[in-house]
Computed example of a mutant assay.
Amino acid sequence: AYDIVNSLVGSEMCIRDSHYQLLRGEFPNASFTNDVSPFIEKIRLYKTPEEIKKLQGAGAEADFAFKIGFDAIRTGVTERSIAGQIDYQLKIQKGVMHESFETIVQAGKNAANPHLGPTMNTVQPNELVLFDLGTMHDGYASDSSRTVAYGEPTAKQREIYEVDREAQQAAIEAAKPGITAEELDSVARDIITKAGYGEYFIHRLGHGIGKNVHEYPSIVQGNDLVLEEGMCFSIEPGIYIPGFAGVRIEDCGVVTKDGFETFTHTDKDLKVLPLKD
């Protein structure tokens, strides 16, 4: 059943009549419902070793994209220009023809809005620059975020970065079979709240990843789902201070029998990039 549904269900999770008839032929004694979304979500919770390899491949492409993006930063370059260079280099150097979503680059105050795409805003010295990007690799998505400093960061910029990094690392270390999605969200959220930035962490800790960039489960307050081996999702705490800066650090990964293995490996110590004209 897993192989049939996995091959028939697309990104919109709908089954055509021809697919329905095929399923009826495979399972003549089964009953069917109009809404198969809960069934599909449950199946898609667990990734096979073959799927995990594809997710790891997508993660490696995201790591490459970060290198391109970091190198493209210079004074006066627009967010859109940096995003465009990332997409172009992915195509010509890695053969990546599709991103899993629009490549996001946000400099300075723009990064305080996590829903804002790249604009004609230009990078200026001593700003934080946030990257959020991903690729499609053999039908499977990556999604990862890093934030870097262009020029020497202020004490406040360093502080919010280190709080977010601590929260993300603590959540990665806590992610293992037996913890609930809500408890995992709380691990990161409590650290950010204790540091005085709780009101600036304005979204869930994470989301599932697979054939779609957003899948089940949702790592969020109120979700008592117990995490199990083979589940794949993001861990992405963020701190967004309007008019000042935004920081997000994100890795997708898989729950193993012992913990959580990420698909991306770009260093998460605060990278301070030299000023370039």
Rank of each mutant, 00 (worst) to 15 (best):
residue 171 A to K: 13
residue 169 Q to W: 10
residue 109 K to M: 06
residue 165 R to I: 00
residue 119 T to F: 06
residue 176 K to V: 12
residue 152 E to I: 04
residue 117 G to L: 14
residue 142 S to L: 08
residue 137 H to R: 06
residue 164 D to K: 02
residue 169 Q to G: 03
residue 114 P to Q: 05
residue 85 Q to D: 08
residue 169 Q to K: 15
residue 149 A to L: 03
residue 133 L to F: 12
residue 148 V to Y: 00
residue 171 A to E: 10
residue 82 I to H: 05
residue 172 I to Q: 12
residue 113 N to Q: 11
residue 74 R to V: 10
residue 152 E to T: 06
residue 148 V to H: 00
residue 166 E to S: 12
residue 147 T to C: 03
residue 133 L to G: 03
residue 113 N to A: 06
residue 167 A to R: 06
residue 133 L to V: 05
residue 156 K to R: 14
residue 114 P to C: 02
residue 70 F to W: 13
residue 165 R to W: 00
residue 154 T to V: 06
residue 176 K to M: 11
residue 118 P to D: 13
residue 75 T to S: 12
residue 93 Q to F: 15
residue 79 E to S: 05
residue 71 D to S: 14
residue 128 L to P: 02
residue 78 T to D: 09
residue 74 R to F: 09
residue 102 E to Q: 15
residue 133 L to E: 10
residue 76 G to Y: 13
residue 138 D to F: 12
residue 166 E to A: 13
residue 159 E to N: 14
residue 113 N to L: 09
residue 168 Q to T: 10
residue 71 D to M: 02
residue 137 H to P: 02
residue 154 T to S: 15
residue 105 V to R: 01
residue 138 D to W: 12
residue 106 Q to K: 13
residue 87 D to E: 13
residue 124 Q to W: 09
residue 128 L to H: 06
residue 141 A to N: 11
residue 132 D to P: 01
residue 93 Q to S: 05
residue 171 A to F: 15
residue 126 N to P: 02
residue 97 M to W: 11
residue 100 S to N: 06
residue 164 D to C: 15
residue 88 Y to W: 15
residue 120 M to D: 14
residue 125 P to Y: 12
residue 112 A to K: 01
residue 112 A to E: 04
residue 93 Q to C: 03
residue 128 L to N: 04
residue 102 E to R: 14
residue 96 V to D: 13
residue 115 H to P: 00
residue 177 P to S: 14
residue 139 G to N: 09
residue 121 N to H: 10
residue 153 P to H: 13
residue 161 Y to S: 02
